[in-house]
Amino acid sequence: MDTKAPIVENVFGISWLSFNLSNVLMITLVSVIILIICIAATRKLQMKPTGAQNVMEWYVDFIKGLIGDTMDWKTGKTFLPLGLTLFLFILISNVIGMVTVVVVDDYSWWGSPTADAGVTLALAFMIVLLSHFYGLKLRGGKEYGKKFFEPVFFMFPFKVIEEFTNTLTLGLRLFGNMFAGGMLTALIIGIGAKSIGGAVLASVPMLIWSGYSLFIAGIQAFIFTMLTMLYISHKVEASH
């Protein structure tokens, strides 16, 4: 017996507008969690950091390093809040799906929002759009346009296609990893749930896979943030 996603179609009578309420709920939940954690950790900021502030500062330094790898820090400074928010958003989204399962009337409400292609593609689309926006803003139309004809003019079609493939690969990489992770977890549990022997047999791979999933969740958040900064740097930095 399969569970269904709580999908609402034709919202406000608009035929193409549909929601997966599970995703809406989880994204809201993730946002609220991040908001609470970050705001709580940055209350009472001191010159001599303690506890939570130390962690947050370590995190800021980590993202700083990530941005510093791809572009000049002077321009990169602008994208620090984006990088900080993006990494946390994706990391928490990835991890939250492993925590539990909530099913009400055959509708599955709990899961990683990043295990949905729509969500990840939306994020990727937003990133690519941002990179163009900042490319135009920081370097001007002429310099921005010139990028499409480098190193030779006939690269133009490829450069245009690249923008779309970038969006697709960025979004689908994250989606694929998280979705596959969830599928494999489900398969292992499927073995374990059939019989007692199966449960014993499945416990070891389950343990390993859970750890590995956590690892993947971190790695994918890292890759997504890193590629974001790389794409942005391609647009905002002068060609080398």
Binding site: M1, D2, I7, S22, V101, G111, A115, G182, M183, G190
Partner: peptide, 12 residues
């Protein structure tokens, strides 16, 4: 109900 059933979601 199996946990695996819940996880396959309505996804993709």
């Amino acid at each position: 109900h199996f946990y695996s059933d819940f996880l396959t979601l309505g996804a993709v």
